[in-house]
Nucleic acid binder design. Sequence first.
DNA 1: GCCCAGGAGCATA
DNA 2: TATGCTCATGGG
Length: 205
Amino acid sequence: MNVKQRYHELLEAHGRQGWWPLPHRADEDGFDADGYHPGRYDVVTTEQDRFAIYTGAVLTQNTTWQQAAKAQATLFDAGITGPSDVLDTPESRIADLITSARYYNTKAQYLKHLAHHQRQDGVPTRNDLLGVKGVGEETADTILCYAHDEPRVIADTYTRRWLHGHDITVSGYEGVRAYLDQRLPRDTVIRQEFHALIVAAMKQR
DNA sequence: GCCCAGGAGCATA
DNA sequence: TATGCTCATGGG
């Protein structure tokens, strides 16, 4: 498959998506009401932005983004805007705030683990992240690509379906990841946008 | 009332 | 390694 060509077709059909959405910066210059920032890719600048991506990546697991974003807004409204806040808040309280994101008890536990990890400065390795309970391959790649600007491929279920729709069958997360990793430019912005475009394309049906 | 979303951990074999 | 179960909201 000519992945680069498909990428440009997707871009033409759906436009620039602007991922990862940062709802806490909605209505700021260059952001829309949902926290999207189409056409601007250098927007992640603060620890709070990274915190939003870390938590968003967990909250959206097997859940619609709408529900996850609602849960995240509730967290921010409650004054929980960084890893230290998570650690200072009882797990049951966190769970209570994120019920809209489904699996709230499990995810509250995950957020605790992740907050503890995020407090250690620097860019984590993929293996560091995989060692955190609640962070699997997809969530690790999401965090690295969107919060730390690493050119990672995110091989989620939409990506698998999209490939399958083009008669390409690759098995497992690693199979899909490796297939696209070979065919996409090692460019962070392109890979961020590529994943967002696939989600946009698959949602439309 | 039914279906299923931008997964991951764990037990079992 | 592979499959199956658990978690447990809310919009269409």
